[in-house]
Computed example of a mutant assay.
Amino acid sequence: MSVLAPNPSVSFAPAVAGPRVVVLGNEKGGSGKSTTAMHLVVALLRLGYKVGVVDLDARQGTLSRYVENRTAFVQSTGLPLPLPELRRVARSESPSREVAESEERTRFDGALAELAGLDFLVIDTPGSDSHLSRLGHQAADVLITPLNDSFIDLDLLARIDPEGRRILGPSVYSQMVWEQRQQRARAGGRPVDWIVMRNRLSHLDARNKQKVGGLLDQLAKRIGFRLAPGFGERVIFRELFPKGLTLLDLREAGTDLTLSHLAARQEVFSLLSALGLEADPGED
């Protein structure tokens, strides 16, 4: 039984023509991009949508391995868990920048063309500024940027004064996102819904959290994103990876839900609600 239902108050429906593209973008490691992506993929599959995964971070390949682990688990157990279509797009090894970018564009366009008949594409981008990352950002209908709740990670979005009170200017990542949004607009694309997903780090004190929250509220208005709740530091997210499972699969996989599981599931449901998907209140 699906644990999700569409939320009519938020528009997250597929486009009229072609799949809706959701991109996970962040140039800092350890932000939970792949975990977020996989939970979103499974949520959409459980709503009955046809979903494709495009991994532009082929060298690291975390999301690809997550999907492959899930496929292997389904094959070994026979459980009818929903599976997405997967495509990897590798960086070009050509020493010529012009040739490399042309090859990468061809590979990227080819992957999207192969998955054109699906409802959603979820794209994972590399954790660095690259041509493939920029192609992914430019394709986004929805851009999700997971961000750990700290001044170090806030530096991804903006330069902050030494006292942590004032925004001095946008970061290189924010500038890159702005440039790709402009490119998309010039090509006639729809506006990008940029969502910054605010993860919670338990070791941060309340005063720092309040400062980070205030600065994020300012930045949201200045550079054009909206905030969504993220995940806390929970072991369960790391434990699910080897089997390719998500918190939405636990009952079918025969796992008895603990209080920690339920708390983590609620974090996932809160994020999905911000994206226009709702948990079935009768499920828990």
Rank of each mutant, 00 (worst) to 15 (best):
P6E: 04
P14R: 10
A5S: 13
A17I: 13
A37I: 07
K33R: 05
V22N: 04
K33M: 02
N26Y: 01
P14T: 11
K33Y: 01
F12N: 14
A13L: 15
N26K: 04
P6F: 04
G18P: 15
T35H: 06
V21A: 08
P14E: 07
R20C: 11
V10H: 06
A37L: 08
G18H: 10
N26W: 00
G25A: 02
G32K: 03
H39A: 10
V10M: 07
K28A: 01
G25N: 00
A13F: 14
N7S: 09
K28V: 02
N26L: 02
P6S: 06
V10R: 12
F12I: 11
A5N: 11
G25F: 00
V21S: 08
V21F: 03
V16Y: 10
H39P: 14
L24Y: 07
K33V: 05
G18R: 08
A5V: 12
T35W: 02
S11F: 13
K28R: 03
K33I: 03
P19H: 05
P19Q: 06
A15V: 10
G32W: 00
R20I: 08
V23I: 01
V16L: 15
N7L: 09
P14Q: 09
P6N: 04
T35P: 14
V22Q: 04
G18E: 05
E27V: 12
A37N: 08
T35I: 11
V16I: 12
T36S: 13
A15M: 14
L24N: 06
P19S: 08
F12V: 12
E27G: 09
A15S: 14
P8V: 04
V23S: 01
K28Q: 02
P6M: 05
G29A: 02
S11W: 12
G29F: 00
N7R: 11
S31E: 02
G29L: 01
P8W: 01
G32Q: 01
N7Y: 07
A17R: 13
M38Y: 09
G32E: 00
A37S: 11
N26I: 03
P8S: 04
V21I: 14
F12G: 15
A13Q: 13
H39Y: 09
V21D: 05
V21L: 05
G32P: 05
P6Y: 02
A37P: 13
G30N: 00
T35N: 10
G25S: 01
S31N: 04
S31V: 12
